[in-house]
Nucleic acid binder design. Structure first.
Lengths: 139, 139
DNA sequence: TCATATATATGTATATTACATATAGTATAC
DNA sequence: GTATACTATATGTAATATACATATATATGA
């Protein structure tokens, strides 16, 4: 019912109507968290994101690689090439103390965000509990 | 620590470093839900958003008004001018049955999203439970 | 009348995500 | 030996979403 998309027109809103409600920049805290457990590289981190519980399709490699580079630019991770293994060289990332602080900050923000979603859902459930829709036009 | 922002350069990532992790398009389900309880107009809905629990600053009027117009274009709400009251005319919005269906779809998506955040937080808490940071360089 | 509150709306810069594509090393199947 | 697939990183750009600025108009109270 909400799948059709629209012609792009400047300054007219055009978007996917699917109510996914994704969390903005959620890959960033995930990467920080994965790295807090173990140093790793883009391709493997991508696979872990994939198994994390996203209902969305596979995470975009571009997102993963660019986020890692951004985090490095900010001093939140550091990297070095790993050419020791078989296969193409990997860029191995390690969390820095600044990155750890950022992860903790993210965790606080995510906890608050989760509470807001809970508040929404509680009010929603309360309102529609065993109830026919009200205040809704038949159009 | 994460407040500084960067010079804009094309195709270089530039963003606010605050880990807000806002939920994409969250005003949309909020507006739908508010309207499911009572027909209303932009300015009042804006105030309700303000009291909903956002840690963010006041919601942007542009977001509210444009989202309402978008929802009307999609047939999820309908509006008519209310000139009966004192003050400037209000555009009064009413939820349609399509809008109600969209609200229900949003609620499902939000519930899933909340679970993902919970999963993240559980793993995070588990990992850092009474523990000194590990695998973190001292840089 | 001047400031303030109410009310709606648009313009555009910035931020974020999605999709496409490029490159290259290695393995294995034929 | 070479075509194919998998591993691995990276960039270009279109589409989407948010943030900030600003414009307009009505009404109220100092």
């Amino acid at each position: 019912m909400f799948e059709s998309s629209h012609l792009a027109k400047k300054y007219k809103i055009k978007k996917c109507e699917c109510p996914s409600g994704k969390m903005t920049r959620f890959v960033e805290p995930c990467l920080l968290f994965f790295l807090s457990r173990k140093s790793s590289y883009g391709y493997e981190l991508m696979e872990r994101l994939n198994n994390f519980g996203f209902q969305e399709a596979k995470p975009d490699p571009a997102m993963v690689y660019r986020t890692l580079r951004y985090l490095e630019k900010e001093g939140c991770v550091s990297s070095k090439w790993d050419t020791g293994q078989a296969g193409p060289a990997k860029r191995n990332y390690t969390l820095t103390s600044k990155g750890l602080a950022l992860l903790h900050a993210w965790a606080e923000g995510i906890a608050i965000r989760r509470q807001v979603l809970g508040k929404f859902l509680n009010q929603y459930k309360e309102h529609f509990k065993g109830k026919k829709p009200l205040n809704v036009s038949s159009k």
